[in-house]
Design a protein around this nucleic acid. Structure first.
Lengths: 144, 144
DNA sequence: TATATTTCGGACAAAAATATCCTAAATATA
DNA sequence: TATATTTAGGATATTTTTGTCCGAAATATA
């Protein structure tokens, strides 16, 4: 569904968010350890997300990553997916046709549109805050 | 959603099916040309599908691939996907957790289960014959 | 039987995705 | 100011996916 990179990105953001809910800033090493992701690769991804203004980063001792509660409530999972994987999941043809639309549809077009619009809606209505809260209250996990 | 290999596989099967509806047996070159797929790679894929007993192949002059109308009506898109991509799309965790289930769910588990069960149902209720007919009647296309 | 045609299958190649390493830049603290 | 810590970013490496090539096997036809 998502690329590995995108899975890491979502998990990283959620881990940082849960820690930010406790006013704790986290280092890359912590993120990697608590999401089961490769550290150096995670660093790249966090850098990208920081540039996209989804995270706040601070260099130096006591530095790390954090995310304001206000932002957690604004940012939707769809935005992370879009920043990392682009719009293929939302707009690409399920059979890989260059052009595929209602006028010249691939044989699965209608069926795909239906599924994907639900996927899209789901991602666009799910906030970081909602998921981070699930983790904080022990209702779900990010690793194992 | 699907791997490139799987996209080629579905398109190839559908092309062969539309031709079989006209009692025409097709060669790999025809398949590649009419689905916009690389020929040698398509050959590999068709070989796999033949082994999975989804297609019938014949070597030699006037040989090629075909699929019985009876089979077109039996075989679902889900079977092609499973043969090529395995069950990750049906059972894998959306965030890539090794173990993710209702008891120890990732934060997106419930939402993913909902989407994926619809995707699964869609793939499991769509037959080759249904889609091949759409192509034959000009309602949809496999290329461009 | 000889030849041409076609799929089959193994080895190999290229491209893309995933992952590592290392140095620079920033910054808190002593 | 000197040092330790941490992110940023470029270069490089590894793995996986996608793709090619070529000879072998099968078979229709002359």
């Amino acid at each position: 569904m998502f690329s590995k990179t995108c899975e890491y990105a979502i998990k990283a953001v959620l881990y940082i968010a849960t820690q930010s809910l406790n006013n704790t800033r986290v280092k890359i090493g912590d993120v990697a350890e608590n999401t089961g992701s490769p550290e150096a690769f995670t660093a790249k991804i966090l850098s990208t997300l920081t540039k996209h203004n989804m995270l706040h980063s601070l260099k130096g001792p006591y530095g790390g990553f954090e995310i304001e509660e206000k932002k957690m409530k604004q940012i939707k999972i769809s935005e992370i997916v879009y920043a990392i994987d682009g719009d293929a999941i939302y707009n690409g043809c399920g059979l890989g046709l260059d052009k595929c639309n209602a006028l010249k549809p691939c044989p699965m077009h209608d069926k795909f549109v239906k599924i994907r619009s639900e996927l899209k809606k789901m991602l666009e209505t799910t906030t970081i805050h909602e998921l981070a809260t699930k983790i904080k209250t022990g209702k779900s996990i990010l690793i194992r």
